[in-house]
Amino acid sequence: MSTFEPNLVGFLCNWCSYAGADLAGVSRIQYPTNLRIIKVMCSGRIEPGMVLELLEAGADGVMVTGCHIGDCHYTSGNLHTMRKFALLQKLLAKTGLEPQRIKLEWNSAAEGQRFANLVREFTDQIRVIGPNPIKAPNPEQRILLNIRAAKEAADGFRLRALVGKEEKLATEGNVYGEKVAQDEFNEVMEQAVETEFQIHRIQLMLRERPRSVKEIAKNLGLNTRLVLNYMVALRQRGWVDIKDAVEGTPLYAAQ
């Protein structure tokens, strides 16, 4: 049996972490070959949906690195990274994939050794948890559905708008000038993530074929009342509609 070689992707910001990786090279610090690096100008460019897409495509792990807090070349870019990564973690937790498959780290241009250590630790960590289950010959359908739903939820208006407003809500307050405390915001975020995740799971199922509320509830392990509520929301957004009814039970289909 061959040992498992993880496929890892790393998003590195140009100014600190990519420079840190270069320094590891210049200093000839050896580390495992598993990470494939993508350079972006700022770690704040990375969207949760991008990471989820790579996990869906079979990446065993995805790492995002930026400048240390306070050192961001763009002043506050990494603060945005932090908020986006928090959303990513919440979504990933819903999918059933291991939370250790993603990693956010700060690494400066002077930390060549540290960068090498990060890659080594991350590679070892993924070796321990094993390959991305999505790559299995017969991947579990539930996980596939979950990760797709998570990606769509991440790309959707509601969660993106919430993360985008997080800073302003905390510092300047909402339209009424009321500042929102961090745990209060987390609460709102947590609920929004759950709703969006479920809504997108339902929508994905309905894209396959029309289904009844009862069937969806059974499939997703949710109670029917809840699914009905989600269905109302989905209809309001114009994403699903009642197709026809079988023996008095309405069937819903994606629009």
Binding site: G44, K84, G164
Partner: peptide, 10 residues
């Protein structure tokens, strides 16, 4: 060119 706006726009 940091891209934060692009990553954020809902």
């Amino acid at each position: 060119g940091c891209g934060v706006c692009g990553a954020t726009c809902p």
